[in-house]
């Protein structure tokens, strides 16, 4: 593999996928003005699934997962998250956002708050958790991502990898049932990619439902149970990782894989 960050030969841990549906997207379309950015997207995600979304830049990957927590609104079709239909009703949107965690390429930590405050903010204000309790939970998750000793620093004092792990911990503090990742490692220096991917793998092993936009193919092979390839706003191919990498069906996928893996 061209990707040294993850050892792809490790056998994927047994991770259960249940019959329960976490996200259901039906005939979803989205336009930016007159630009048809997502076209007839159909996607069903079961609870416990780890889905990796890849595709060339500009193919609409970010837009797709941002539609799932309504950071972008779609114009046609249905998106159901955890049984709640995404509509323009603000109550619904806030509810879904508080149950769907999201990690961004540039972390989007709040620079004016300490790491601990970053993590307790949403539980305190959205979930109305008492401060003490929220801080305990936050420390728990900061330990999980292995940076409890940085709790009182500000984001600007941390390395990129640490910041991204804080961002993951911050999302986990809301006890989300689904996690979305939008290229979480592509703004990181190579030596920091592994620490973030390790955290994500751990999360997957605990049965978190995950949708990850990433080009870390090692990660895809290690934890994904499905890989989705997007191009020009459409889902072009999806398959389980082995088949997807060893035996891609469409020409676009083949071309993309050959470029990204440097074959």
């Amino acid at each position: 593999m061209a990707d040294p960050a993850i050892d792809a030969n490790v056998t994927p841990p047994r991770m259960e996928v249940s019959e329960e549906i976490a996200v259901q997207i039906t005939d979803m379309n989205k336009w930016y003005g007159s630009f048809h950015v997502l076209r007839d997207i159909n996607l069903t995600v079961h609870r416990g699934e780890r889905i990796v979304i890849c595709g060339p830049s500009g193919s609409g990957k970010s837009t797709l997962i941002r539609c799932i927590n309504a950071l972008e609104e779609h114009q046609k079709g249905r998106i159901e998250v955890d049984g709640t239909l995404l509509s323009s009703d603000l109550k619904n949107i806030d509810k879904i956002r508080s149950e769907v965690g999201m990690c961004f390429q540039h972390f989007n930590l709040f620079p004016h708050l300490t790491i601990l405050e970053n993590c307790t903010l949403a539980p305190i204000w959205v979930r109305k958790t008492p401060k003490k309790e929220a801080e305990q939970a936050a420390m728990h998750f900061l330990e999980k991502v292995k940076i409890p000793d940085q709790a009182n620093k500000y984001p600007g004092q941390l390395s990129g990898g640490q910041q991204q792990r804080v961002a993951i911990a911050r999302s986990l503090c809301m006890k989300p049932r689904i996690m979305l990742f939008d290229e979480p490692t592509s703004a990181l220096d190579p030596e920091m990619i592994k620490e973030v991917l390790d955290t994500m793998i751990e999360l997957a092993e605990e049965g978190m439902t995950m949708l990850c936009v990433t080009h870390e193919m090692g990660f895809a092979q290690a934890v994904a149970n499905r890989v989705i390839f997007m191009d020009q706003g459409q889902i072009v191919e999806q398959n389980e990782p082995k088949e997807f990498f060893n035996n891609p069906k469409s020409d676009r996928t083949k071309l993309f894989l050959s470029q990204i893996l440097g074959h």
Partner: peptide, 30 residues
Amino acid sequence: LPKGQYEGASSLGLDYWQSMRLIILPQALK
């Protein structure tokens, strides 16, 4: 302020006034 600050706040489920009061205005006013 970078757009990411608004998105970070929204993605955590903060409503408009909460994100303004807790995230956006403290930084913008600074």
